[in-house]
């Protein structure tokens, strides 16, 4: 992982069309501004990873034949 130190209002540019800027820093919270093409989706890391984990569990699902009766 590349680690860079940035101050408020400084930015990093990723590839040729993504820019991440430090908008504000308050205590241990950093506000990021992200400029990216519309089709590049941006996710909070822990949420993406949570959903990845849940998808892996979901992919193991097995169901009884009478599953509709449970509803």
């Amino acid at each position: 992982m590349l680690v860079l130190a940035r101050k408020t209002n400084e930015s990093v540019i990723i590839g040729d069309n993504i820019e991440v800027m430090i908008v504000d820093v308050k205590g241990d919270q950093v506000k990021l501004g992200i400029k990216a093409p519309r089709d590049v989706r941006v996710f909070r890391g822990e949420i993406y990873r949570d959903i990845q984990k849940e998808n892996i569990e979901a992919a193991k699902s097995e169901i009884p034949d009478d599953i509709d009766d449970i509803l």
Partner: peptide, 11 residues
């Protein structure tokens, strides 16, 4: 939406 069924516990 994706449903997760815990092993042996469809309820």
């Amino acid at each position: 939406i994706i449903i997760t069924v815990p092993q042996g516990k469809p309820n």
